[in-house]
């Protein structure tokens, strides 16, 4: 009966990130924070980053908010990926992830770089959920774009 495609997105890894997020907390000494909203479903997310401006390194990343399992797990996976990385690397991962969600084919290296977030690839075939998966990443884009214009 089940067509499988919807339920298969709820992998063990995704369910675990949703139920036990590592990065879901308010970052007191954040240098940047940005709100992302998903108007169609009312999801709200605040992304916090502490960026070391001298070395352009994202020292710490976290998020708060509410949303579906996909948006929450995606945010948790993203925070884990970008924490400790350079701003340029975060931008590269952002490009990879958004490209993947929009249906671009990924190389094996790219898949490795996106780690668990690459599991969200099948979302590209579920238009109603694309915005959920993208929410945290779009919010990251907001912070990084704003930071560049400020510079």
């Amino acid at each position: 009966m089940s067509n499988g495609s919807t339920s298969s997105i709820y992998s063990a890894a995704l369910m675990d990130h949703n139920a036990h997020p590592d990065y879901r907390y308010e970052l007191e000494d954040a240098t940047h924070s940005h709100d992302g909203i998903n108007a169609s479903c009312g999801d709200e997310l605040t992304l916090y980053l502490r960026i070391d401006d001298e070395n352009d390194i994202i020292e710490e990343a976290s998020f708060t908010g509410h949303g579906c399992a996909i948006s929450q797990a995606s945010a948790d996976m993203m925070a884990g990926l970008i924490e400790g990385e350079s701003v340029d690397e975060a931008k590269r991962l952002l490009g990879l992830f958004i490209g993947m969600i929009q249906g671009n084919e990924l190389s094996e290296d790219d898949i490795e770089d996106l780690d668990e977030a690459a599991e969200l690839q099948s979302i590209s075939r579920m238009p109603a959920r694309v915005k959920c998966a993208e929410l945290a990443w779009r919010t990251l884009n907001g912070i990084l774009t704003e930071r560049e214009t400020e510079k």
Binding site: S2, N3, G4, S5, T6, S7, I9, Y10, C41, D43, H66, G67, C68, A69, I70, Q72, M126, A128, R129, C132
Partner: peptide, 11 residues
């Protein structure tokens, strides 16, 4: 979350 509910039901 309701979107997870509707997503699974849609399947």
């Amino acid at each position: 979350h309701p979107h997870d509910v509707s997503g699974i039901l849609s399947g």
